[in-house]
Design a protein around this nucleic acid. Structure first.
Lengths: 194, 194
DNA sequence: CCTCCGCATGTTAGTCACTACCAAGTCGGT
DNA sequence: ACCGACTTGGTAGTGACTAACATGCGGAGG
């Protein structure tokens, strides 16, 4: 069997990665992010500190894993080109949020979001990842030329989505995230936004 | 003279602060942010590392000093209440940018902006300071009750302003910053935004 | 079944941002 | 001239992160 490649090795790797992250988020929530050292996380997960750094380049990455970027960029690229920029981006964001929250790990996502809100270092890096997402969206929209309009539109849409994310975490996920994002977009851009 | 309080002591303090920051921005620009240690900055400024930390709590604060927050929040609070949220916030941002760039230290501001763009750590903290600015704007707009709409509108406006800041730095300040902000706002919210 | 290659992990030593804790000098007013 | 507040410097420590090298297990081939 030459192509059963994703075998035990990759499996094990993914397992330890998940284990480390789960223990990290739990400890951060219980004791606080700053009060928890990477060594604590490693001990709880039953590995050495080095192993933690091999799987997660920085302590912040234990909380921030970006599943959003490719997903949203792909949806934006697939949107019909005839619509205004804000509508194309906005709909793509609502759709990708639909996919994200349907994955089952909603509680875990909420816990991570709460950490991002309350911890300055995590909040800052999370906002920077939104900036990277903005670039990805712009690249998907206009692969060249003057991107000023696209940059502004994408940034504004993502800021609105960020407000929706914060509210979603505050409400402990009671309201559906896509609905919240749509509400934030209409709040910022008017009733014709979507 | 009991009330000549802002005397030599405060003067000296402000002087060393400016000296340290000037050397820091120069060294960061010349050698790169990560390749420059706080000890390097201290030595260049002729002080001990301790003194640097007393004036600037973190290395990032050597570049990021937020003169924007109170200024913009005050302008937002002063805006007429009859207008839509985006217009009130947008005009306040354009006005405060007008004040900021008129202060004479435009080259220094540009150098700091370029550092913020190119250095991930600085970019992240800068975006987080925009998030704090967003909160200040919302507080100035709606002191209580449901702030969801204000949050979304303020965040979107600030994201548009951020795009304008990036472009301004790229253009080396050739275009007037208030004009760029206005352009970004109309790009995101349509021609009726302002 | 044995062997060799590669990958995941561990250990050590080091850099650097940052933080008390304590000592010294200096400016301000009495 | 003296005293209190402020500014600075030195020392020792914590914790995130890196580089270099050693180990041990999984997965191929003979």
């Amino acid at each position: 069997m030459p192509d059963q490649h994703p075998t035990l090795r990759a499996q094990r790797r993914a397992d330890t990665q998940r284990t480390i992250q789960a223990h990290a988020v739990r400890l951060f929530t219980e004791r606080g992010y700053d009060a928890t050292t990477v060594a604590d996380v490693a001990e709880a997960a039953g590995v050495s500190p080095m192993t933690v750094y091999r799987h997660f380049p920085t302590k912040e990455d234990l909380v921030l894993v970006d599943q959003h970027r490719e997903l949203a960029a792909e949806r934006v690229a697939a949107a019909p080109a005839g619509q205004p920029l804000v509508r194309r981006i906005g709909r793509a964001l609502v759709e990708s949020a639909d996919v994200l929250t349907g994955d089952g790990d909603e509680r875990f996502l909420l816990a991570r979001l709460r950490l991002m809100i309350s911890t300055p270092a995590l909040r800052a890096k999370h906002l920077d990842s939104h900036y990277a997402l903005q670039q990805a969206i712009v690249d998907a929209l206009e692969p060249g030329g003057d991107t000023f309009h696209a940059q502004a539109a994408a940034g504004a849409c993502l800021a609105a989505m960020h407000t929706a994310l914060m509210r979603w975490a505050e409400d402990d996920g009671r309201t559906a995230l896509p609905d919240l994002i749509a509400e934030a977009l209409t709040a910022a851009f008017g009733p014709d936004a979507l």
